[in-house]
Amino acid sequence: MTARIGVVTFPGTLDDRDAARAVRLAGAEAVPLWHGSESLEDVDAVVLPGGFSYGDYLRAGAIARFAPIMDKVVDAANGGMPVLGICNGFQLLTEVHLLPGSMIKNDHLHFICRDQTLRVENAETNWTSEYREGEQIVIPLKNQDGQYVADDYTLDQLEGEGRVAFRYVGWNPNGSRRDIAGITNERGNVVGLMPHPEHAVEPGFGPDSVESGRAGTDGLAFFTSAIKGLLAHA
């Protein structure tokens, strides 16, 4: 069996091709999904990629939330289907209430683009099981509205339930509360993060690594984690 992972394209999505490529490099079939469609095409998992859906008008992800396909994604996620939201996809997951909190403009107001070190805080989600807890990875980060905010009650709940999936290491690049880079839902099937694992999956095109320039592929395990979980249940 080959796992089928859908990648949704909204008007203004930028990273759908890279996400689809990451899915293929990890060994699954990438299935393009259109925002206006009401069918998930029998996929086994969904990636909501980065970009500026609907121009980020109103708030990042605020309009994409009401796209026809999102009803199907929410139903599937509530039924346990693995869903990964990257950057704009993470913002969308908060707007559609699959994940708590929200993102506001970076505290320093600048768009930022850099290779970012993260610590894997939860290696038991559908998208992180091929990492080790505490492992540090480097993947690109690029955004303007990346400051994760939530009230203290929600933050305490996330920490207490082990639902902080990734934390920024070395430097908090956007003022996110408690250095949070990514979170998961209770079940561990829905994960959202601001940095971009799909840009660090192929030698020659990733972040610099200790071995050589552009050799970093630390993002690939997001996708192999999901595929391994899907095949185990097949």
């Binding site: 109103l58 708030r59 605020a62 309009i63 009401f66 707007e95 929200s102 506001i104 905010v149």
Partner: peptide
């Protein structure tokens, strides 16, 4: 529902 996000 749309014009504001009650979280922020």
């Amino acid at each position: 529902t749309l014009l504001s996000n009650p979280v922020i």
